[in-house]
């Protein structure tokens, strides 16, 4: 199975370890990966700020780049950015040159944990992590991509990992793209409540499938000098993997 890696600009710029973990997990499951090098960004920073004219070029570049390979799927490590690529179907539907290409791209694009769970049928990725963790379900992952199951299921099968529920998980962490820089006074209050809720779980690890939310929450933890280990779900599923533990949906638990 050929998979084109949609790295997202934030992983490209900031978090190589997330992209690396995702590629290693995908290849462990037999995916033949490729990296379309002209890709940049899904376009949310400018589109969500209202600069729609400028964003058309961003959309076109991303479609051309990601569709330049013959991959069966496009997989990215961020629920929000993947939801945006899916939304291209609507956003470019009146663009005679790009409508079909964008729709074809949207249909084969998946968020990393979603791809493992729904396309590869992975239930236990074989990982082990001895920790008490809590999971931040990002808003775009759950409400726009509508993926509310895959990350929880995959994490529930990581050996020695205890995932404790995060109170008020439904509330936004206060990132919101340019919202975080344009409205810092509101964003601060939101991320503070999130930090407090995370601290209340006594978890030592915070996990999410959205690097931007993690960057926001981590940044506030750092500013408040509160200690926490931050992990992207790909890093968790790539941790201490024992191939003997790997299990797929069509295999019974005790095989």
């Amino acid at each position: 199975m050929k998979v084109a890696i949609f790295s997202t600009c934030i992983v490209d710029l900031m978090f190589p370890n997330i992209g690396q973990a995702m590629v290693e997990v995908l290849e462990r499951f037999g995916c033949e990966t490729s990296f379309p090098s002209k890709q940049i960004c899904c376009g949310q920073p400018t589109y969500n700020s209202g600069y729609h004219k400028e964003t058309q070029k961003v959309f076109h570049n991303e479609v051309d780049a990601l569709m330049s390979s013959d991959a069966d799927y496009i997989v990215g490590p961020a629920g929000s950015c993947v939801a945006m690529l899916r939304e291209y179907k609507n956003l470019l539907k009146d663009d005679p040159q790009y409508a079909d290409k964008a729709a074809a791209m949207a249909d084969k694009t998946y968020e990393f944990s979603q791809f493992l769970y729904r396309i590869l049928g992975v239930r236990d990725a074989g990982a082990q992590l001895d920790a008490v963790a809590t999971y931040h379900r990002s808003c775009h992952m759950t409400r726009l991509l509508r993926e509310r199951q895959a990350p929880y299921e995959l994490l529930s099968n990581v050996k020695d990992l205890q995932v404790v529920p995060l109170p008020r998980a439904e509330n936004c962490c206060g990132f919101g793209g340019t919202f975080s820089v344009k409205e810092p006074q509101i964003s601060r209050q939101m991320v503070d409540e999130k930090v407090n809720d995370i601290l209340s779980t006594k978890a030592s690890v915070l996990i999410s499938a959205d690097p931007s939310c993690l960057m926001n929450i981590a940044g506030r933890f750092s500013r408040r000098n509160e200690k926490i280990k931050i992990m992207h779900i790909a890093e968790v599923l790539n941790h201490n993997v024992d191939p003997a533990r790997i299990r797929f949906a069509d295999q019974p638990v005790n095989v």
Partner: peptide
């Protein structure tokens, strides 16, 4: 923001 538009559209 317009600069960001150019940067995210031009490899």
């Amino acid at each position: 923001m317009k600069g960001a538009g150019v940067a995210t559209a031009t490899p």
